[in-house]
Amino acid sequence: METREMRGHEVSREQVEDFLYHEAALLDEWRLEEWLTLLTEDANYFVPSTDVPDGDHRTSLFLIADDAVRLRSRVRQLLGKSAHAETPRSRTRRLISNVRIRGREGETIYVTANFVVYRMRAELVDTYVGRYEYTLVQHDGALKIKERRAILDLEVLRPHGKVSIIL
C-alpha cells in the first residue's frame, strides 16, 4: 500500500519530458490559454537579465519577472491585437533537451532542461539559447508549473532586441 502510494508520487524523467514537450507545443502553436492551465494559480515566470543569470528579481533588474497577474495579462495581450511586436505573430520552434530532475521536496519537483527557441518573423530568425529551471508541483498525479525561469545563455539580446514571445 505504502509502496504504491510512493509510486504514485514518483515522477519519471519520461513523464517530465512529455510534460515539457507538451508545454512547448502549446507555446509554439500559440495555444496560450491552454498553456495557462498548465500553471498553478500563483505561478511566476522569470527571465533574468543576461548579465546576472543567477540574479534575484527583488534586487536585480530582470528582463521579465511576472507574477500571476502580469503573466495572465501577458497572455491576453499576446492573444489580442495591440501587442504590435507580435502582430502578426511570429513563428516559433522550441527544442527542449537535457531534461533532468534535480530534486524533490514533497510534491515539489525541481527540473532543469536546455532550450533553443527559434523566433521567425519579418524574414529574420532570432535564436534564444538557454536553460529552464522549473518548479513543478504534482497534484493527484498531474504536473503543474509553479515557477518557470528561462535563463538565457546569450550575453546580450543582440540582435534579437526583445523577448516578445513567452520563452
Binding site: 537579465s49 546576472v52 533588474l61 540582435p159
Partner: peptide, 11 residues
C-alpha cells in the same frame, strides 16, 4: 545603478 543591465538592440 541597480545590478542587471538590459543589453539589447534595435534594427
Amino acid at each position: 545603478i541597480v545590478s542587471g543591465a538590459q543589453l539589447y538592440s534595435i534594427r
